[in-house]
Amino acid sequence: MSCNTSVTHLDASSLKRAEQVPVHLLPCEIEHNGVAQVSQYFTATTKDHKQEKTVSFRGRGLKGQEISCPQGYTGLVLKEVNKHGSDQEDRTVRISSVFNKLTYWNLETPPTSDDAVVMAMDWPEVAEAIHGSVED
């Protein structure tokens, strides 16, 4: 079991340098961590219809929509600084980019309010009910 005393610090000052980026949640696992020509291949070929966006990735048809971060919430992309092997030591993550909305994509099916990620966005408001202060 990993060590329960190690702490991961969030370098909050890195927020100042973080830029807004477009983020897309894809319905496939891409075995890659690193650069990609997203705007050239993906954004450039994305089409906006009334209710949904369409695009192809690797020859497969995707349908998606843009959703906003819940009120009072911000999207952050965290990146570990000087990743090391040991889980005994404290770690640090910094905010590498921020976003206020994201686009999620389904494989072939049109986006609906029943999609799990849309439903997951209910969580902060329900969490507020569970965790907010109760009156005496």
């Binding site: 830029e19 980026v21 477009p22 983020v23 897309h24 949640l25 894809l26 319905p27 496939c28 696992e29 891409i30 075995e31 890659h32 961590n33 690193g34 650069v35 990609a36 020509q37 997203v38 705007s39 993906f42 992309v77 980019s97 990620v117 997951a120 969580w123 902060p124 969490a127 507020e128 965790h131 907010g132």
Partner: peptide, 21 residues
């Protein structure tokens, strides 16, 4: 079977982490 495009990068881990009070 999920991954992210973040700006001009791919992030293989497709999780979306919520941090709530």
């Amino acid at each position: 079977f999920h991954s992210w495009f973040v700006g001009q990068t791919v992030q293989r881990d497709g999780r979306l982490i919520f941090v709530t009070p």
